[in-house]
Design a protein around this nucleic acid. Structure first.
Lengths: 218, 218
DNA sequence: CATTAACTAGTCCTTTTGGACTAGTGTGTT
DNA sequence: AACACACTAGTCCAAAAGGACTAGTTAATG
């Protein structure tokens, strides 16, 4: 276990720099890359990092939904979720989505090093009941707002989340297409899927729903 | 300006450590003391620090209220407020309570060093408009956050705000017209004004800007 | 190997949106 | 009275968005 490369995703540059320095206290850490958002991390051109540290609360795509995208981009990389709060549902959601561990930002440097070591040696924190929860939690995820009949509740794919994030940034289909290097028609397809998944018919409605459901935040 | 001693008050150990390391990049910094809460900071037995960095969001006493306590405990020490959000009311409150400056945690290490230098040399950041409280209610609250330049900021009329709110709820022009008992053409006029006031060209962009500026909230 | 799902790309068509206009009606203000 | 301003309503037009399709490619899965 040497020449480790870590990737930090957090919107606070201050926090990133600080965490980066803490990580580099370990001499086995060769490189710490920083990204200010999920999409920025996704667009980095680099080989698979050994570990990904992902903040939950970020403007734009939240860390929870970011897991989907970043697991798609960096398939073999374990993800440690970082959060300012200790909300148990956050932790459950993160682990259900496939995070390897959950760390509160109030943790000390020692705790962080300990958890990282655990994750890197293959001991997923709280992985003992992941398989059972995979289904139940994914349902529970959005059932919070589905008291009334809300059957359009499939979860969005990584690409759809990406498109949704850009919609929420106010981008037009044309701009999204340029940004994703696909045709505008393709974007339309994704937008269409997103709208139908969210059960709405306008992108501005989608923005509202995405916020209410915690998919994106400001 | 040598042998500086700084005091950080923040509930996140990780953040404290990181910020401390950033501060110590400056060789004039002799010591960085950390405290996890306002009361912990207050009960420290130490001489007056040269600078106090205080987080706004903390369990227990918030930073805003903490200013009063810490200015009493460390009378001559300037206070830089730290916040995760850019909420203008937070910033105004902090400055009104006597903070010397306001820093977003998304700031880079360079920005931090710059602001600290400004504060230590006596140039209070943004203290120029503290006295005009009567305008700040009606008028725009954005001139304060001029660190990141934002341009078009005429104020919206009541009707325009109403329309903007409905836009942000995802309503179409037709629905808005029905809700306000006016013609769709009228709504178009208002939407057009709103877009131009916000300096955007799409309603989804307007939603984003409206949220960032705190014009509407969820 | 077959199947499925996701991503891609396209067409055709309708509705919506937004910009650039003109203009009438109140409501204040000077 | 004159003026400014907000709100109202309209037209014309171009661009954008969205629905309903078909279809090829790729990756994963059984």
């Amino acid at each position: 276990m040497s020449a480790q490369r870590f990737l930090i995703v957090d919107d606070h540059a201050l926090f990133r720099t600080g965490l980066s320095m803490i990580l580099q206290q370990d001499e086995s850490v060769a490189e710490v890359i920083e990204a200010g958002s999920v999409l920025e991390a996704k667009n980095l051109t680099l080989d698979l990092p050994n570990l990904l540290l992902l903040d939950i609360q970020m403007p734009g795509l939240t860390g929870i939904e970011g897991i989907t995208i970043l697991k798609d981009r960096f398939p073999m990389t374990p993800i440690i979720m970082l959060s300012s709060s200790d909300k148990p549902q956050d932790k459950q959601l993160a682990l259900a989505q496939g995070a390897a561990a959950f760390l509160n930002k109030a943790a000390t440097a020692e705790e962080i090093h300990r958890v990282i070591k655990q994750v890197l040696t293959g001991n997923l924190v709280d992985d003992n009941h992941l398989s059972k929860q995979e289904n139940t939690l994914n349902n529970k995820h959005r059932q919070s707002s589905s008291m009334i009949g809300d059957e359009s509740d499939k979860k969005l794919t990584a690409r759809q989340l990406e498109v949704l994030a850009l919609i929420c940034e106010g981008k037009s289909n044309k701009l999204i297409a340029r940004e994703l290097n696909v045709s505008e028609n393709t974007v339309r397809g994704h937008v269409s899927s997103v709208l139908s998944c969210l059960g709405v018919s306008r992108r501005s409605e989608a923005i509202m729903v995405a916020q209410k459901q915690g998919i994106i935040s400001y």
